[in-house]
């Protein structure tokens, strides 16, 4: 299950360009963008309109 070869996925990451997906505070994405880091900000909305009961039912339906 570990990453390919003897290196491991964390060490592979150390040798790669960081490409970030940001979910939440838009200021974190803005900071990365300012530094010319590849970042994509998710325009996230609470699932099931913020209704937690409904969100958890949906998650169960999706098998997560």
């Amino acid at each position: 299950m570990e990453g390919s070869g003897s290196m491991g996925k964390i060490n592979e990451l150390f040798a790669s360009e960081i490409k970030v997906i940001n979910m939440g505070l838009v200021s974190f994405a803005k900071d990365l963008k300012e530094q010319k880091i590849n970042v994509i900000h998710v325009d996230w909305k609470p699932p099931a309109g913020g209704n937690q009961k409904m969100a958890s039912l949906l998650a169960k339906l999706k098998g997560k």
Binding site: S16, I18, K19, G24, I40, D43
Partner: peptide, 23 residues
């Protein structure tokens, strides 16, 4: 472009390797 979900972000940028979550 700001996609609405993690899945759509990943489709848009398949080589992403780090997710920063502050939800």
């Amino acid at each position: 472009y700001t996609p609405p979900t993690l899945e759509s972000a990943l489709r848009h940028e398949p080589s992403s390797n780090m997710v920063l979550i502050s939800l």
